[in-house]
Design a protein around this nucleic acid. Structure first.
Length: 755
DNA sequence: GTCCAGACTTAGAAGCATTATT
DNA sequence: AATAATGCTTCTAAGTCTGGAC
């Protein structure tokens, strides 16, 4: 209590600002890169800011000493673990199986046998060695460039350009994207054009002397049209031809789709080398539009076991390197030219290795249950720490835990400017007293994170301090922090704990809580609706968004109109009841209340819409029928037919107009009893309800992507339990590929399993 | 400690297949 | 049967995190 009081009063003035060499260095870099103000000014501010940090220095060195002590023992432990490896049960078991299997050698039986391999029923702690044998057939390369027919060309300033094939290919990459947003993006255009000119120069320039200098004068439309035509032609093929092509493709790909891991047949994920193209960076990526160059076998490293037969490189080529590294789970790798990083060919999501790490991920998150209370208590306490670094860690932990922020590593200038927790800047967090915080920043994939939230008073106070002048836009909010500092801190609580585990933990925990709220009643469809709502809560927590599909607004409107029409129908039927028996109104005034709610103008609008739809329907029917007849060389429908149909609609219109004027409903004679009308109304009510729910669902889902959390964050066993307990077929929650990926969960979780 | 290569998970877009609608 | 809408898969970009070199 006393501590609290003391702390609260002295808060802003005497928190010693812990400084680390890291922090200082980083901040200098940050400040000097600021656009606003002169660099000198900024540096001075830092220095003055840092200068009153005396107390903290001591604290830090104490911490430092502790940490350096820890590390050797950690190293020892890890070496020990490696030497223990051969003892591990899991690694040995499969090799026995494998020997048996290999003696039989008849591979078909082997495949079926190993398909049933249940790794999740075995013990396995050590996973630094991923396999003992690994055999595969290499990778598929994209087909070589096939030049365009000679009459399809790029036009420059109205003139056809004769491009060497290498340059034509690059121009074609752009042409193919002509109607996408990328082609409108100036950065994309510029990067593409530079690389295109490079390739053009390297390949000897245009062959007919046209000098290409200005992007604006390039006309890619003929190339674009040609690609469209090709697509069209592909579509036009008969279904037989399509089937044949598909079969041929599958047969060709078959050997690459699978590999043998410890003698078991496993699926490969991305066995195709990425084709060349234009780099499609997300958001404001400085490199978007650059040419992603073609990958050749010489660029590719294959990874297999020492005895494995090395797959043949494509004709006239050699592999870049053959490696035998059993500590990794990739089959092939190459270096990509956009950011000079690696690309890997890996196992498919349904493979045992991927499954195992997935399982471990969720188990680690479950383990966090045992620590979370202590961690929360601790960061709540540390919000008042005397040491700046500790306060920052506390607030960061709070953000990560409560708002599910990502760790937020530093990014280079040649990447899109996106942030996570540690990389948040001054301008990303707006403070609104007394305790509202507005987050507004671009996160992973340049997806906007916008949230107006209330935080505890102490968090608010701290944020005010973190934003105190001389800090200004462009400066780091957590200037002492980066993910590695944060993660090291977290590892003090629980081995292996890192920032991302909180996302998994909170996602799965949220799902469990939401599922617990669902009553076990109603139809499967109703239960699924609730399951999806639970899923949606998680997706919102993780800020998983998708771009609204282009037809969305229209389809929502259509659905809404549909509902409106059903409502109108209902009211009409109610009127009809009253026409038959006026006394009904007194018997059940509530039931008939809505009859008066329908305004005339509204009704007229509905009439108009229905009539229009009806007309359109007949016109379409007429034209379609005639097209068909033309094609079959039959006599076309006379125009009088259309006229006749239109007269029918005219009559309907007249009827509606009369109804509107007189207020008297004209119904078919078949439904002329109160009872019959009432059942019809009931049915309509049903339809209206389902349509309304569906519409709401559609709207709620329009910007939220449910898939990402289902695939990566929600422990699949939760869904399995839901299905088992509620009698929902698993197919309803998991697609085929997810059922394969989560086979371990489906087979291991029983009704009572809890996250 | 700091830096960064390397390896792995997570992410939305795009493409393709299937189902619903007319 | 054609078309539109939706669902599912594939693709590859963009993160996180580890560990080794200095």
């Amino acid at each position: 209590m006393t501590v609290k009081l003391k702390d609260e009063t002295s808060d802003e003035d005497d928190i010693p600002l812990a400084s680390t060499t890291n922090g200082r260095k980083k901040r200098k870099v940050d400040y000097s890169e600021l656009g606003e103000g002169t660099d000198n000014e900024a540096k001075e501010e830092v220095d003055s800011y840092d200068s009153d940090e005396k107390l903290s220095e001591a604290t830090r060195s104490g911490q430092k000493a502790k940490k350096t002590k820890r590390s050797p023992s950690a190293k020892k432990a890890s070496t020990k673990r490696v030497s223990k490896k051969p003892k591990k049960i899991v690694k040995r078991e499969p090799s026995i199986e494998q020997q048996n299997a290999e003696s039989e050698e008849d591979s078909k039986e082997l495949v079926e046998d190993t398909d049933g391999f249940k790794w999740w029923e075995k013990e396995n702690e050590d996973d630094s060695i991923k396999w003992t044998t690994l055999k595969h057939n290499g990778v598929i390369f994209p087909p070589p460039y096939d030049p365009l027919p000679s009459h399809i060309k790029l036009y420059y300033n109205g003139k056809p350009v004769d491009l060497p094939p290498q340059a034509e290919e690059v121009a074609g990459f752009f042409a193919a994207l002509l109607e996408s947003d990328h082609a409108q993006n100036p950065v994309f255009q510029k990067n593409f054009f530079n690389d295109f000119l490079d390739v053009l120069r390297e390949s000897g320039g245009t062959k007919n002397g046209v000098k290409i200098e200005n992007f604006e004068l390039c006309d890619f439309s003929k190339m674009f049209d040609y690609f469209q035509l090709q697509k069209e032609q592909k579509k036009q093929l008969s279904s037989q031809e399509k089937k044949k092509l598909k079969l041929e493709k599958e047969q060709f790909e078959e050997p690459f789709k699978f590999c043998f891991l410890d003698g078991r047949k496993e699926q490969v994920g991305n066995f195709r080398i990425e084709p060349p193209g234009l780099f499609r960076g997300r958001g404001a990526h400085p490199k978007t539009g650059k040419l992603k160059r073609r990958v050749y076998p010489e660029d590719v490293v294959l990874n297999l076991d020492k005895e494995a037969e090395v797959p043949k490189a494509p004709e006239g080529h050699k592999w870049g390197e053959i490696r035998h590294d059993s500590t990794v789970q990739w089959l092939a790798m190459w270096r990509e030219n956009i950011s000079n990083s690696f690309k890997y060919v890996r196992f498919a999501a349904n493979s045992s290795l991927k499954g195992m790490s997935d399982y471990k991920k969720f188990e680690k998150a479950r383990q966090l249950r045992g620590y979370i209370d202590a961690i929360r208590a601790d960061y709540t306490k540390n919000l008042k720490s005397k040491v700046m670094l500790e306060r920052q860690i506390a607030v960061a932990c709070y953000f990560i835990d409560v708002f599910a922020l990502r760790a937020g590593g530093e990014k280079a200038d040649d990447e899109a400017d996106t942030v996570g927790c540690c990389s948040l800047r001054y301008e990303h967090v707006t403070l609104k007293p007394p305790n509202t915080v507005i987050f507004d920043f671009l996160g992973k994939d340049s997806i906007r994170f916008y949230q107006e939230v209330e935080v505890t008073n102490q968090v608010f106070k701290n944020l005010t301090i973190f934003k105190k002048p001389p800090k200004k836009p462009g400066h780091q909010l957590f200037d002492r922090l980066d993910p590695s500092i944060l993660n090291k801190h977290l590892q003090n609580y629980m081995p292996g704990l890192t920032a991302k585990v909180f996302r998994t933990y909170n996602a799965s925990k949220t799902m469990q809580d939401q599922l617990d709220l669902i009553p076990n009643e109603g139809t499967v469809a109703e239960k699924m609706l609730k399951y999806n709502a639970a899923n949606r809560t998680v997706a919102i927590l993780c800020n998983h968004q998708r771009t609204v599909t282009k037809g969305h607004a229209a389809s929502v409107q259509k659905a809404a109109e549909r509902i409106e029409e059903l409502e109108w129908q209902k009211i009409r039927l109610k009127r009809a009841i009253l026409q038959l028996d006026e006394k009904q109104a007194k018997k059940d005034p509530k039931f008939f209340a809505e009859v008066k709610d329908l305004v005339k103008e509204q009704e007229a609008a509905i009439h108009k819409r229905l009539i229009e739809k009806e007309r359109e329907k007949y016109v379409k029917k007429y034209t379609r029928e005639n097209e068909k007849r033309k094609f079959e060389k039959q006599e076309e429908l006379p125009e009088s037919q259309l006229k006749e149909w239109m007269t029918r609609v005219d009559e309907l219109e007249k009827q509606y107009n009369e109804e509107l004027e007189t207020g008297k409903v004209q119904l078919k004679s078949t439904s002329e009893s109160v009872e019959k009308l009432k059942t019809q109304i009931e049915k309509l009510d049903q339809r209206i309800e389902t349509a309304t729910i569906q519409l709401k669902d559609k709207e709620d889902n329009s910007q939220v992507a449910l898939g990402t959390s289902k695939i990566n964050y929600i422990d699949p066993r939760l869904s399995v339990v839901f299905c088992k307990k509620y009698g929902v077929p698993i197919e309803k929650v998991f697609t085929k590929s997810l059922r394969d990926k989560f086979k371990w969960a489906i087979e291991s979780a029983d009704e009572n399993w809890r996250f």
